[in-house]
């Protein structure tokens, strides 16, 4: 396997007419399409920001720029880890790839948790909801759609992570499925409950109270985490290898794209409001 893999050129695929791997071409075309998708969303937001109806919400009174800047930094770091994951698999290092994938998912979760906190904060503290102002409608829909992209990205990365354990000799469907379930539970609990909770703690809430009120999700998260560690042990030869670099790279493209969309949103939706 190794001698065959050694000949893989990750920037040229001899089996296609252009030398670009099919999957890479597909994803780049999809990202071009997604540009229009976010273009339409951002346009909607900006159109209503530039021509606001009277009595619209005032963004600067609602935003929490420190937290958002931190989220932005987190997402950039997740992009770095994603790039490193691709780098690792292109060098045939499956172990390092797994670590980097988990790291990317972790940072992705931090970002999502920040967004969950932000949304609940806006709704319950700042009293801006999806329906009580046009700014709420466009803001939540735009950032929420971006968040959904991130969440789908985490799910895809989770599937990819689990796939790296697929045994070389076949079988193991059930174990694989349990593994994916552990990923979903752990990361789901993390971004829906744990991360926003921790941010509350940072802003002065009591940690013990948080635990007391939400013991079940906490327990579920712990169980998921233990399962994840237990299942993460190396279990003999796996099918996944350097030849799958294109799969990791394809998901990487998507992940980085989500990052660059955030770069634009951060500037256009948040920063420019402060002028």
């Amino acid at each position: 396997m190794n001698s065959h893999a050694a000949t893989i050129d990750h920037h040229h695929d001899a089996t296609t007419a252009t030398g670009i791997p099919n999957k890479k071409l597909l994803w780049w075309a999809f990202l071009a399409s997604d540009c229009m998708f976010f273009g339409a969303l951002i346009s909607t937001h900006l159109v209503y920001r530039l021509n606001p109806p009277p009595g619209n919400a005032v963004p600067t009174q609602i935003f929490n720029i420190e937290l958002t800047s931190f989220s932005t930094f987190i997402l950039l770091m997740s992009s770095l880890l994603m790039a490193l994951a691709v780098n690792a698999i292109q060098r045939g290092n499956v172990r390092s790839t797994r670590t980097m994938l988990l790291g990317t998912m972790f940072f992705g979760c931090l970002f999502l948790g920040g967004q969950v906190f932000e949304f609940t904060h806006f709704v319950y503290v700042k009293k801006m909801t999806l329906s009580n102002s046009i700014f709420g409608s466009t803001f939540f829909t735009l950032t929420g759609t971006h968040g959904t992209h991130v969440a789908i990205g985490v799910l895809l990365l989770g599937m990819m992570y689990v796939r790296t354990f697929k045994p070389a000799q076949g079988g193991g469907l059930l174990l694989n499925f349990v593994h994916l379930l552990a990923v979903c539970v752990t990361f789901g609990v993390a971004f829906i409950w744990f991360v926003p909770g921790m941010i509350e703690v940072v802003y002065g809430a009591s940690f013990s109270e948080l635990l007391r009120e939400h013991a079940i999700p906490f327990a579920a998260g712990i169980v998921g985490l233990i399962a994840l560690i237990a299942l993460g042990r190396t279990r003999g030869a796996v099918e996944f290898g350097e030849k799958n670099a294109i799969d990791v790279e394809a998901i990487g493209l998507y992940w980085h794209f989500v990052d660059i969309v955030w770069i634009i949103i951060f500037t256009a939706v948040y920063l420019l409001e402060y002028l």
């Binding site: 399409s33 229009m36 339409a40 969303l41 909607t44 999806l130 329906s131 046009i134 709420g136 829909t141």
Partner: peptide, 21 residues
């Protein structure tokens, strides 16, 4: 198609979740 996808999402939100697009 992404343009109409967004427009349809907005209508769907207007109809189901009370947004104001």
């Amino acid at each position: 198609l992404p343009a109409i996808a967004i427009a349809l999402v907005e209508v769907m939100f207007d109809r189901n979740f009370g947004t104001n697009f």
